[in-house]
């Protein structure tokens, strides 16, 4: 095990974590402001990836595709909010879980009807092809760019929330829903905007990840489950918590898969060690989540004090 390998795996973990952050940020915002649990967030990730792949395929330009992916996810988010989600704010969590579970079925099959059952493939843009030398290791330029993208969006989101009028309204909404209505803020409009913003972030993540993986129906659900783990660890409703949780989950998951089999190999035979190591590595983040919930039931950074 060399330093170069460890560095490469840490970078892989960071890249994974930051893409998880893009997913989790929208999820946690929607819960923080509207008190809504949205299982269909993974479908918005999928919509972003599909629209990006379709437009990039037609125009041959990845960046146009990316814009289209973000726009499509935001538009789908706004539409869903107006048609369905709006009716769920006053309902209990059971109804929210079910209605958004129904949305997953509808959106997944809808995308399958439009794009067909076979995966689409999206090419990495030419300017981000190849590798970059980081001293001891050559690392994929595109994956490095994903890390940059993730950090930039996190910074932008932080600026949006702390520096803009919309941000003030969002924070007010998180702490006291009645108050912002009294302040003359159009709540319906605010809710639609927040939901669309979260959807756009999910769409962005889907499009970015789609370029190195495959774009297929069902791609959003595994990421969705991980995003839930992230926001529960971080504290539901907290953007800072989502960032910390995402990086924790990304790095722990990657390093667990990398290190645990090696650890078990010191006292078990190789194939057994691979099996046990892989089993434990997949459970690691859920174990972390359970521990956090047992010792800090509201997560690491509780949103409401």
């Amino acid at each position: 095990m060399t330093l170069a390998l460890v560095l490469e795996q840490v970078l892989n973990g960071l890249q994974f974590g930051l893409m998880l952050f893009l997913m989790s940020a929208g999820l946690t915002l929607v819960f923080g402001v509207m008190g809504l649990i949205n299982l269909a967030h993974g479908s918005l990730y999928m919509i972003g990836a599909f629209c990006c792949a379709a437009i990039a395929g037609v125009t041959g330009n990845f960046w146009l595709g990316l814009m289209a992916g973000i726009a499509a996810a935001a538009a789908a988010g706004a539409l869903i909010e107006v048609l369905v989600i709006r009716r769920l704010y006053a309902r209990d969590h059971l109804d929210q879980v079910l209605a958004t579970f129904a949305l997953i079925l509808i959106l997944s099959e809808g995308v399958r009807m439009i794009f067909g059952p076979r995966p689409l493939y999206l090419n990495v843009p030419d300017m981000l092809r190849g590798t970059v030398n980081l001293g001891i290791v050559d690392y994929s330029l595109y994956r490095l760019a994903l890390i940059g993208f993730g950090l930039a969006v996190a910074l932008g989101l932080w600026a949006l929330i702390t520096r803009t009028r919309l941000g003030i309204q969002i924070r007010a909404g998180e702490s006291d829903r009645e108050m912002i209505a009294a302040l003359g803020v159009n709540i319906r409009w605010l809710y639609t905007v927040v939901f669309a913003l979260g959807a756009a972030l999910a769409g962005l993540a889907g499009a970015l990840v789609g370029a190195i993986q495959s774009v297929q129906v069902g791609m959003g659900e595994p990421v969705l489950i991980l995003a839930f783990v992230v926001i529960v660890i971080g504290g539901i409703g907290s953007i800072k918590g989502a960032m910390v949780g995402a990086l924790l989950v990304g790095v722990i998951d990657t390093m667990g898969r990398f290190l645990l089999p090696r650890f078990f190999a010191t006292f078990l035979d190789t194939s057994q060690a691979m099996g046990v190591g892989a089993a434990l590595a997949s459970m690691l983040i859920y174990l972390l989540m359970a521990l956090v919930l047992i010792f800090r039931p509201k997560g690491l950074f509780p949103a409401h004090g």
């Binding site: 649990i37 969590h93 879980v97 783990v229 859920y286 509201k298």
Partner: peptide, 11 residues
Amino acid sequence: GIFFIMITLAF
């Protein structure tokens, strides 16, 4: 509430 939903999911 929501935490119960999530922790049962995690287990």
